[in-house]
Structure formats: structure tokens, C-alpha cells
Write a protein that binds this DNA or RNA. Structure first.
Lengths: 234, 234
DNA sequence: GTCTATATCTGGATAGAC
DNA sequence: GTCTATCCAGATATAGAC
């Protein structure tokens, strides 16, 4: 039985993975500890929080490359010198965010999949996991999606690998379902692409969904219905 | 009967709207004529073509705001001075591309919809039109999608209006189908969003579709099948 | 740990010769 | 119509006082 099903799915998810506000920033700090000059953990976490939030806000307005560090300095209320005690360089600032996401992803979803479950359950679980985690970290994922051009080659590669991984995962589940006879024949590539695009849409067009008062549970049910209608044998 | 159906859909589309290479650049020149200092039409069109293509290439690599006009000068083989005889300013260069798209859209799709056709036909026609036009102008749409942050307020508004328009169009068709009893009850907002996201995916993830050798006809059929399964009463 | 002041460079933009 | 040379605002980044 899917541990996240029932009326309180999202609540259960949040309480079963380390994704509270505090845990997120703690994890972010831990991941980048050695690059940060400031030693006091409590101070560092607080300032990082300020910096990243301001970065999201400004990038959202004018894009990361048009955001100057003077802008950032003003928005955070910190001086240029202070900023550099945390971020190393502007490029590194972007990369820190990018690197954090696969890290959180592994932490919250990576290990939870169980190949003994039915393909439908696996698929639903994967979809739910994706939506839930991007719901919790929406500004992070949005930033990563929009600002991919600023990455070093190695980090770009990392991002590509991660994307490929999730496509293969999807493809495998669909294939398994087909073999077991619970899914009808379909184009696995196109189907995976569609699912991914629906998942991305949730955090890319977040504002629109908010405006229309669609919550993530409704969105998940919608996806499951569409995919179900398409994949499941009638 | 849908004029674009049959085995040669895409070919027929291309021959029935002004979207040949020459016609596109001609239209682009006409739209921006008065902003361009160079008087000789033939020269102007040729150079604009060079400039825009180079802009797409470089923006693709590093993003528009990280592309310097010196980069652009090198890539086009033109001097800075020359560039400015065509583009006015870097910002205007981006805006010229953005403004062109609704223009082409109206030219190629705007007037073709016919409310007397069945909802299914209208929907298919709209989907086909979208895919076909974005197939012909893929780098343009990709650029516009990725580089929205550089626009003046007025042009941003224009883009938003256009998006809203296409959502309303979709919503209306779905609603009509529901009233006529050919579509089952559905969430019109979520359904429109899904269709739009599938349409966007075609030009945003173009490389992936190319790699997997999916042509636009297969993609259209896939979309129609998914939407059909979901919307049409069984 | 944080600030101010500053070094250094790169970008957009233009003037004026050809 | 195109090029070269140049202006100058604004960017990243750092040094050193507090």
C-alpha cells in the first residue's frame, strides 16, 4: 500500500521526509559548508537563507544574469564584502542552488521506490513524490529550470544525467506495466516526456495554478486520471 | 473537413500559409522596417537574417543577457557599428523577435478557426496549427520562451495577453464540446493548461524529440490520442 | 563577521573617417 | 553602409579598517 495515500497525503509526505524549513536550510548549509568562510553555523544558515531568498526574488524579476550583486546587496541588506563571505562568486551562487536539488531529491524520493509494488502504484508514487517535493521547494526548482545557462560544463552534465535518470525510471515502470499486461501498448518515450512535462508544469507555472486555487492534490489526481485513461487497459 | 488532414498535412500547411524561408524574413523586415537605418531592402534582409540567427545560436549557448554585442559582432562577422545600424539597441533586438511571433501567428492561424466545425475538429485544428507553426519557427519560439525577462513592461503585457487569448480559445472549444455532449465533463482550466504544456514541449525540448526521431506528425497524433482518451465520451 | 573604498575590467553605445 | 576608436556606466571582485 502506498504510504502517501489517503486524505492527508501531502501532510504525511512532509512529516516522513526531512523537508521542514529548518531541515532544508540545515541541509543546504551542510552541503556547502566548506565553501563558506563564515564559521558560526547559526549565523551562516540565517544569512544563506536571506541570500538565497533574495536571489530567487530578483532572478524572478529580471533574471539571474541581469541581477547585479549590488542589487543583491541592497535586497539582503548586506554589504558586498559580506556577500562574498558566503557565495564565493556569482557563478558559484547559482551552482550551489543547482547542486542542492539532486541532493534533496535523493534524500526524499530516491530510496523510496519499491520494485515489488504494482506498476500503477510505482508510477503514482513517483508522480506524487515529484509533485510533493517540487511543491515544497518550488522557488528552487523554478530557479534551476529557468537559469540553466550559467552553469559550468560539469554541473550541466550532472543536470542532464539526473534528467536522464528520471526518464529511464519512468520508462522502466511503463515497460514493466506493459509486460505485466496492466498497461496497454504505448510509445514509452512520448509517454515519459509527457509525464515529465506535466510534472515540470507544476512548478514552472506555479502562479497560474495558485491563482486558480488548484492545490497539489487536485493536480496529482488530474495527472493520474489523464495517464490512467491513456495507459490503463479498459 | 479539416483542410490539413490526410497524409501530407505538414506539407499542405506550409504551402497554404506564408511561411517559406523567404516569406518569413520578408515579413520580419516589413514589421521592423522603420526602426532600421539601412535603406536597401535586399541588404537589410540578408543582414537581419545573419544577426537573428547568430543571436539564436549564442543565446542558446549562454543566454541572451550573457551574450555581449561583441560576441554577436564576431559571430556575424559584422562590426559593432554595423550591428547598430540594424538593431537600435540590445534590448530592442530581443523585442523585435518577441513582437514578430504574434504577428506570424495571426498571419498563419488566427483567422483559420471556424466555429461551425465540430469541437473535435476545432481542437485538432488548433493543435495542428500550433505544432506546425512552432515547427517552422522553432528557434524563434524557443528564444521567446527562454528569454522573457528582458522585455519592457508593454511587451511583457502583450505576451501575457496573447497567452491568455489562446487559453480562452482552448477553454471555449472544450466548453462547446461539453455542451454538445461530445466531450465528457472535465476541469477546463487544467485541461487547457495540459494541452498548452504539450504544445510548448514540442519546441522547448525539440532536441530530444529530434534525437528520438519523432516527427511532428507522430507528436500530433500522440497528443490527439491522449486528449481524446481523456475528453471523449466512450 | 561586516563594512567601506577601490581596483580592474567588460559591456553597451556612439562619433566620425572612409 | 561599414569600420575603427573611444566614451563611460556599471559589473565583479578584493583589500583592509573596524
Amino acid at each position: 500500500m502506498n504510504q502517501w495515500q489517503g486524505e492527508n497525503n501531502f501532510a504525511i509526505f512532509k512529516s516522513s521526509v526531512p523537508i521542514s524549513n529548518q531541515q532544508v536550510w540545515q541541509a543546504f548549509y551542510q552541503l556547502h559548508k566548506e565553501k563558506i568562510q563564515v564559521q558560526k553555523e547559526k549565523v551562516a544558515i540565517e544569512k544563506l537563507k536571506t541570500i538565497i531568498k533574495a536571489t530567487f526574488k530578483l532572478s524572478n524579476q529580471k533574471g539571474f544574469s541581469l541581477m547585479s550583486l549590488r542589487d543583491l546587496s541592497q535586497e539582503t541588506g548586506m554589504s558586498m564584502g559580506s556577500l562574498y563571505a558566503y557565495i564565493g562568486s556569482k557563478t558559484q551562487l547559482a551552482e550551489m542552488v543547482h547542486q542542492f536539488l539532486p541532493h534533496m531529491f535523493d534524500l526524499c524520493i530516491g530510496e523510496q521506490l519499491d520494485h515489488k509494488e504494482s506498476p500503477q502504484q510505482q508510477l503514482n508514487k513517483l508522480i506524487r513524490g515529484h509533485i510533493f517535493i517540487t511543491e515544497c521547494l518550488q522557488p528552487w526548482f523554478f530557479f534551476a529550470f529557468m537559469e540553466t545557462k550559467h552553469l559550468s560544463r560539469s554541473i550541466k552534465q550532472l543536470a542532464k544525467d539526473n534528467e536522464a535518470k528520471s526518464e529511464i525510471l519512468l520508462g522502466n515502470i511503463i515497460e514493466q506495466g506493459e509486460k505485466e499486461g496492466v498497461f496497454s501498448q504505448s510509445d514509452k518515450f512520448l509517454t515519459s516526456m509527457m509525464i515529465k512535462s506535466l510534472l515540470q508544469n507544476w512548478y514552472v507555472k506555479r502562479n497560474k495554478y495558485k491563482q486558480s486555487k488548484t492545490d497539489c492534490e487536485s493536480y496529482i489526481r488530474f495527472i493520474e486520471q489523464v495517464i490512467g485513461n491513456y495507459l490503463e487497459k479498459s
